[in-house]
Amino acid sequence: MNKYDCIVIGGGPAGLSGALTLGRARRKIVIFDNGTNRNRVTQESHGFLTRDGIKPQEFKNFALKGLETYPSISIFNETVIEINRDDQNDLFLVHTSNNKSYITEKILLSTGIQEEFSLSQIRQYYGKSLFSCPYCDGWELRDKPLAIIAENDEHINHMTKLVFNWSKDLIVFTNGYQLSNKLRNDFENKKIKVYTAVIKNLYGNHGNLESIELETGENILRSAGFVVPNFYRPNKFAKQLKCQVDENGGIITDGAGRTTANGIYIAGETKKAGPSSLMIAAADGNKAAFSINMDITLDRF
């Protein structure tokens, strides 16, 4: 069985960036990626310097092409299903869905997060006309008649005030949540209408939103909008490996990718279980790789 210096779980910008740095440090690396990166549903990725507007898969292919220069990096399209720690030898045994096992000294968790929505219909429009990040997609929706779909004061307040920078034509949909009087007054002063009725359905074609129907029978025209999903980690690896978390569910690190579990490092959205940009995730992977390489160096010197 081959032994690796580090196994990278997750081939998004954080994992690929980390692997690149480790490959350049002549470390033997394997990346496991099953193609479930959450930005795969979007048409374009924005905000990454020199690659603004690139298609997510094109961005990923470009990154993978760059890794081909380094012969010590392997990439497997497999899903990791279990990680066991070998305390006696200070190693990890990684098992995949293909009934294969791999040994490694270090692990970089960069599996990202996934969204879940209270309205299943949002999936039909998510990534095409409904989005969760104004910094990523606000420019393309500027001055359009937009919907804000969120279901508590904190999320409604944050998203609405932020999106107001890109379009003043906003309508807030709370899907049954009763907005606080203060927030309602703030919105009324900016001529932002609020509907608190439960949403019955979304209408549109080929992922392009056209209107939102409420249980009251009202049907409000909107061409696009922003939603606030709930985010979750798609696996329990950090918990199973006993990485400590803070009161907000973020995984505690030393600021450079090291978790409280020896040999386990983390980068990207996995760390805070919240959304991040491509550029920040890639920087996280780079930073974690510096830590991994230094720790390997000190272990062996």
Rank of each mutant, 00 (worst) to 15 (best):
Y203V: 12
E188N: 15
L179A: 00
E188T: 12
N230W: 01
S223R: 08
L179F: 00
E210A: 05
I171G: 01
K168N: 11
P234T: 08
N230I: 13
K168C: 03
S167I: 12
V194C: 10
Y177D: 02
V227S: 03
L162D: 11
I171N: 00
N175P: 04
V163F: 06
P229W: 01
I220Y: 01
R233F: 02
T174A: 02
E218F: 09
S223W: 00
K182F: 05
R184H: 12
F226M: 04
H206C: 04
K182N: 12
I192L: 04
E215V: 15
N189K: 13
P234I: 09
P234H: 06
A197G: 09
L179T: 15
E210M: 08
N205E: 14
P229M: 02
K191C: 09
K200N: 15
S211M: 04
L179I: 15
F164W: 09
F187V: 12
A224H: 04
A238L: 10
S167Y: 04
V194A: 03
N189F: 00
G225S: 06
D186R: 03
S211G: 05
F231A: 03
H206Y: 10
V228D: 07
N219A: 07
I171F: 00
G176N: 04
I220L: 09
I220C: 08
V227M: 04
F164Y: 15
V227N: 01
F231Y: 14
K193A: 14
S223E: 15
G204W: 01
W166Y: 12
V172N: 01
N208Q: 13
K236Q: 13
V198M: 08
E188C: 01
E210N: 13
F237P: 12
S180K: 06
K239D: 13
R222V: 14
R184W: 00
V227P: 03
L209D: 06
K190Q: 14
Q240A: 12
F226E: 07
S167Q: 07
K239C: 01
L183H: 03
I199V: 13
P234R: 02
N219R: 10
A224E: 01
G217Y: 06
L214M: 09
E188G: 09
T216N: 14
E215P: 07
Q178W: 00
K239E: 15
P229R: 03
L179E: 02
L209P: 08
I212Y: 01
V228Y: 00
K200T: 12
K239M: 07
P234V: 08
